[in-house]
Structure formats: C-alpha cells, structure tokens
Design a protein around this nucleic acid. Sequence first.
RNA 1: GGUCCCUUCGUCUAUCGGUUAGGACAGCUGGUUUUCAUCCUGCAAAGGGGGGUUCGAUUCCCCCAGGGACCGCCA
Length: 466
Amino acid sequence: MSNVATRFAPSPTGALHIGGVRTALFNWLFSKNQKGTFHLRIEDTDKERSKDEHKIQIIKSLKWLGIEHDGDEYIQSTKISDHINVANELLKNGNAYKCYCSAEEIEEQKKRARQKKLPYIYNRKWRDLPESEAPKDIRPVIRFKSKIEGSSILKDLVQGDVEIDNNTIEDFIILRNDGTPTYNLSATVDDHQMNMTHIIRGDDHKINTFKQMQIYLAMNWELPKFAHIPLIHTIEGKKLSKRDNASTLDDYSKIGVMPDALRNYLLRLGWSFEDKEIFTLEESIEHFNLEGIGKSPSKLDMSRILSMNEHYIKNIDENELYKNLVEYCEIYKEKMNPAKEVKIKSSLSFLKNKAKTLEDIYNNAKYIISDEVKFEDEDLKLIDEKAKKIIKEFNNNLSSLESLNKENLEPIVNELIKKYETNFKGVGQPLRVALTGSKFGPGLYDIVISLGKEEVKKRLDSKILA
RNA sequence: GGUCCCUUCGUCUAUCGGUUAGGACAGCUGGUUUUCAUCCUGCAAAGGGGGGUUCGAUUCCCCCAGGGACCGCCA
C-alpha cells in the first residue's frame, strides 16, 4: 500500500449533491489507483444545519455507488479542541492576532468599499495595535496574519501553476468570537492530522487553498498536493446548486438510473481516457489519473445519463439486472413478490429491450408483477364489439395448443387478421390491452408466452371484456 | 468591481506543430420490425475574434471578447 491518502469532506446538511458525488468518486478512484486509502470526513460543525440522518444518507449513497471509505468516518465536530489549540499556537508564534472590531465596524467598511466600488478586504486594523487598546466590551475574533508582500504559487495537479498576489488574501478569521473555529482552520488541521497527501476538490475552493497553504506554512506542516477539478454546470452554464432540479444523487436513483451507469457517466464527465466510453469499476480504477481531468467545466446532460443507463441495462448480466430491479422496486415502487422471480427473470430479455431506466422495466413488467389488470377508460374504448369477438376467438383457439410459442401463435393471429379484414394492430392492440391494461409494452407474443396459457385464458375471460 | 480559471460539433470529449480535426450521446435519413422500441446503413455537425512565433498552427505566446468561480464570525 502506498501512502497516498485522499478524502471526501461533505457537510451533512442535505442530500448528496451530484457534484459532490463526482468529487468523491475522483478522490476514491485516485486513491484506489494509487493503492492508497480513501477517507470520509463529516464536516458537521454547522450545528444549525447538520443532521445525523444526512450523514447516514450520504454514506449510504456513496455505498450505493460502490464507494466505501477506509477506516472510520472522521467527525469534524469531535476535533474542535484540536482546531482551537492550533489557533492558540498560531497566536503564540505570531501568525495570528485578536481583532476587536465590532460587527458594525466591519459592516461599515464593507459598505464603504461597495460605494467606492472597491473590493472589500479587512483593513488589518488590529494586526499591529497593542492588546492594551482593546475595548473591554468586545469579544475578539482571531485572525490569521496573512502575507501582504509578494505572491504565492499553487502547484495544482489539474490547473498547473496558479499565482496570486498575497495582498488579495485578507486576514481571515480562524476563531469566531464565541471561540469556535472556522472552516479554513478546521479543514487544514483535519487534513494534516488525517495525513492527507492529495486534496482533490472543486474549483470553488481555490481561494481557500491559498489561505490554507499559509496555515500549513505557519505551522511548518508538510503541504499536501492539491487538485482543483472544474465544476459541473447546469445546461445554462451555471454552477450546479442544490436549488437546481435533478441535482442530487437521489434524483437519479429514483427514476431508475443504476449505480454503475451513473458512476460511468460521472467518470466521463470531465475526465477521459483515449476514446473509451464504457468502464467497469475495475477498469476505472486501473485507468484513472489526474492527467485525464479536463480544465473546463462540463454540463450535465440527461440524455447521456439515460443512454449510459440504457447501455448498462442492455449489457449487464441479467441476474445482476434483476438484482438492481428488485432493489429499485423495493425502495421506489413496491416490494417484488419472490414467486414472480422466475417469470420476470426469464422475461427480462424482452422487458429490457424497451427500457432506458429501471422504472421503464418496472412499467413493462407490471403485467407480470401485478395479478390484477387495471384498465384506463381511454384504452377500454379500443375494446369494441369487433375487438371482443377477436379476443374471444383468440381465447378459444388457444385451447387447442399444447404449448405457447411464437410459431403456433402466429398462425392464429394471422387468421384473425384475415377473417376480420384488419391488420396486426387491429388484432394485437385489443389483445395487448386485454392482457396488460396498456396499449404499450412488450410484443404481443412475448406477453402471451410469458403469461402462460392458464393466465392468458384467465385474463381474457374477464367480465369486463365480455 | 477585484482576483483567479475556462473557451474543439447541440452535449461529453480525442488531438500533446503537419490529420479528409477522430469517437460517443443527442439530431436527421434509409432499412429490418408486430404498436412503442431495439438493431443495422448513412448524413449533418466544431477549433470565439485579432495579432504574433513557425515552412506550417486547434495545438506555443500576447491582446480582446464571452462564460464561470470566489470575494461570510457557511462549509
């Protein structure tokens, strides 16, 4: 095992976001490719918004996708005293200072900056003021003494060298006036304590990285390597946010996108390996690298997700597909009766032909899953007097058959077509509706054969068709 | 507004100075077909603009334009 260690650090404030899923995937793949470890850190220090149920949901979602973290999850809120200790140490070694500015004073500065159309940056008032001048009635925050002169370079594994003037980074707060640490401090201390070697995260963290690098430097800690991956955009080209629909993992699982398909789609969103499109889990681990990550943001494309899913539906082992279907139905539709397993499994070959999602397969298979045929008024209209005769005659002709197969069903249907001077649709559609309650669905012969002679007769004998 | 990042078919992308700019999804033809699909043919579709460097730029450099991210005592 190498010493490569990566992490995914979500805050448990909601359902797992699709952008977060991809970040987790990239971190996980990179560590696995490097024979390293992947860790999960729960950043639950925002007590207001953090919920245990979200944490559980996040872990479950990652597992659903095939991502499991090594070791226990690291709970940030349990490490707060460590963060505070580091803040005090920074205070002691002169890399941080107490700032006694009131909230009003800061607000005033921001307002003035806005008016002058200048960027707001804290004016570093207390950076050099002596403690003796501190007002008694204000509890100070602790600010990091950020570099003013020169510039810093981030050697980013995806973006290359990024240089920024140090004076554009303000003296950011590391400890609030209630004594709690802020994000940049906590994240840095945690990453160091967790011995992270590679920080792979969204582009939106780049400025944070410049702040965090300074903390590493001030503490004399070894710097991890950073890789900032471009964000996922909506079709309009904006950062995908929780407010956008179809932005969480659940949005996809609930319509019947399979984990492997989503994993494969996300893998290829912003990453490529030659012209290869389809990657098994093993292949993705084998080939994943940071070099293959593109620099430009990419848009989420539903039709690609669906066609990827369709590809998996058509190509994976049918036992595997059935497992996915059962799991899906249990969560989002209805629990499948185990007695139907054989029938559904053997019908999968044609049920899946018309499906882009597990939901489609479920809909196609409804006539098997449910013993009762429900009719829509609209469809019932198709069953006119002529249709009833056809159905009856078909039903009678069935009796003479030893077994059901396409070869012996076809002549019966063809004869009916001739006799009633119609086309296949004229015979097939009423029969399909009679047997399944729907105009759409698998081919007629597939339906009849899969139902079996007895069940077909039972359904065609229904009073509603008489 | 400041800082930083990005820019190849509608979308995801390949190309690491010389290609008829390739693939995939979507789209559109045609064929098979038993509705809807599947499947198979084929077609159409791209280097934001302007300067350099070079015998030669999508590729290297600069400028512009457009888009994006960040600018919390949230994470």
